[in-house]
Amino acid sequence: MNTKNQLYNYILEIADDSLILGQRLSEWCGHGPILEEDIALTNIALDFIGQANNLYEYAATLSENKITPDQLAFLRVDNDFKNALLVEQPNRDFAYTLARQFYFDAFRKLFFEKLIDSKDEQLSAIAEKSLKETKYHLKHSSEWIIRLGDGTEESHNRIQTAIDFLWKYTNELFEDNQAYTEILDLELGISVSALKSTWLEYVHSILTEATLTIPNSPFSQTGGRKGIHTEHLGYLLAEMQYMQRAFPNSTW
């Protein structure tokens, strides 16, 4: 694989994380726990979909084929998607949604902070814009983890369950992918494994503030980066891609 090709795939991976999580969050629109939070979740969903769009646009310029961002989003099949398993997990309830968000935001903030230094100017610019959004997302999700953890007995139990359950999907975020060695060597992309200790430290500090127990299960699930997903992604894509599949070659 040449560098351009590696970069293309590398960008798709970041974009897929954003799109799939944005899609999940958008399911909340109209169903939030209170009007104000409904609006907040939708704002976050919009940020993610915007990020995905920017990244797909850039990726499309690197592709050997003529391809559009919409084709990347709506016409690839399950194992073409390289998002982490964490972001495709269903919303279940507000606790699961916020636990998923918290783990991911904490990762994403560290990720973009480093990606700003990318030697690829465009990627660096996208990282800079996305970082601003991500900082707000992380503030929002961290505060909710603390509120729910130190709120009522019910909220404490619910958020603890979600934090524990989703833990097994967090390690994947920090697995360096052998497919991108050149990208890392040329300092276009970054090593995610190097982010893990800082991430852990932050997650610990918030969970402690939230009076929650820090999960320590050594088991983890992985595969998303290689296109091997959980059962949930298929349904998400079936719904998201329905129009483009049912009415091919149309303009919307």
Binding site: C29, L35, D38, T42, L46, N53, A73, F74, M243
Partner: peptide
């Protein structure tokens, strides 16, 4: 909201989300 997750393009999805969100704002 019924069609947000099925919007046919990224642009339409974002616009629809923003629109439905506005409605929440207006309600508020």
């Amino acid at each position: 909201g019924n069609w947000i997750t099925r919007a046919p393009s990224l642009k339409r999805k974002a616009v629809l989300l923003a629109k439905v969100q506005d409605e929440a704002g207006h309600g508020l």
